[in-house]
Amino acid sequence: MVRPMELRQLRYFVAVAESGNISRAAQKIFLTQPALSRQIKALEEEIGQCLLERQAHSIRLTPAGEAMLHEARELLARVDGVVERVRTGAAGGRLRIGYAPSLASGLLSPAVANFTQVHPGTRVELQDLSTGEMLAGLEAGELDVIVTIAPRGETRGLTWTPLVRSPWRLAVGLKHPLARQNRVTPAAVAAEPLLIYSQSDYPEYWETVTAWLKEHGLRARVAGEYNGVDSLLAAVESGLGVALVAERIARLFPARTRMKVVSAPPGDLCIAAGCRTDRASDKRLAVFVEELRGAAAGMVDGG
């Protein structure tokens, strides 16, 4: 285990290496030059290697010094990270998360579980919301982070971290004629009554679907708008129409509908974590977003 004195010596060594001059480094860390020189000498004696070539007005790292600088930076970064996480966790507080269940499935649970291990004093609040409600919550400062579809255009004042990309599928009823086809064309989609998420609650979804049909010279025959995946797929199951949904939703409802591959589909949906740009540097928030990224990477690695 590294003793406090050794950590201090490593910090002194990094300061000298980055300054290129012992005198400048001593001024930077508020230490006298002789005292700093003694600390560096003690570190060299501890490891049995010469780290610096001392010249008239500067220093040069030896090969051992170059290796030590790399290792010292990594070790100190890890130590500082541990200290910051412990301090933040001890401070308590809360983390308010907005999410769409169909999109956050497989991401949120492991991320929250890992986050609370690091920050046991933080109260995590989860809110199942529409995209519109999530964006409004961020803007009003009522949410800290959201998990939803990343907007296609620029969103001023928000920072997005991509997590997962999901292709599109066409949801049709079990007895629908399209259920027997391997692949469905855009024209076949446009010919059917289209069930769609509410434009006011899910503007990005609405824009993506309608723009895709327009690119093919087609127009959507919207037969119903819905405020959630359960009501949308219930309508599909009842034979009221068909719906374009993310492939991730197909895994949640394997028996209720048939999910068909669409030819020339819209670009994959990007599921992302969003937060206010003025909060992006918040340490606790950054830890949670990193846990989301880890959960997303685990899903990809695990197939």
Rank of each mutant, 00 (worst) to 15 (best):
Y205A: 01
V209S: 00
A243C: 12
D230C: 06
A140C: 07
V245R: 03
A187Q: 02
A250N: 00
D128W: 12
P186R: 01
D144V: 13
L170V: 06
A255G: 06
S130F: 08
K175E: 14
S238P: 01
A235M: 10
T161C: 05
D230T: 10
G132N: 10
G239T: 09
P177H: 04
L244I: 03
A235L: 09
E204K: 01
G132T: 08
W168T: 00
P177W: 05
R152T: 13
L218K: 00
P151E: 03
E154S: 09
L233S: 08
Q181H: 07
A243Q: 11
P151T: 12
A191R: 15
L174H: 11
P162I: 07
R248S: 03
D144P: 15
W160R: 07
R183Q: 15
G224S: 07
G224D: 04
K214W: 00
V172L: 14
D128M: 07
V145D: 12
L252Q: 05
L138M: 14
V245F: 00
R219T: 08
S200D: 11
T161I: 08
A136D: 15
M134D: 11
L174T: 14
I249T: 04
L138V: 13
A188W: 02
T257Y: 02
E247F: 03
L213K: 01
T148P: 11
R248A: 07
Q181T: 06
Y205L: 04
E142R: 10
A211S: 13
G217Q: 01
I149Y: 09
D128K: 08
G153N: 11
A234E: 09
R251F: 11
F253P: 04
R156Y: 12
Y205K: 00
V229L: 07
V172F: 12
T161F: 09
E142L: 08
Y226C: 08
R248V: 01
S238A: 14
V147N: 03
L138A: 14
W206Y: 15
P167K: 04
G217Y: 00
A220R: 10
V145Y: 11
V222K: 08
D144Y: 13
A188Q: 06
L129G: 15
A220G: 13
P162N: 01
F253W: 12
W168N: 00
E154G: 06
L213E: 00
A190W: 01
E204C: 05
A188P: 05
I149K: 09
R248H: 04
G173A: 15
L194S: 01
A255W: 11
L240C: 06
Y226H: 11
P167S: 15
T159S: 14
N182T: 15
R248F: 02
G137F: 15
L244E: 02
E225D: 06
R165N: 10
Q181K: 11
E139L: 08
R221I: 09
E125A: 10
A188M: 03
A191E: 05
T257L: 14
A150K: 15
L178N: 08
S166W: 06
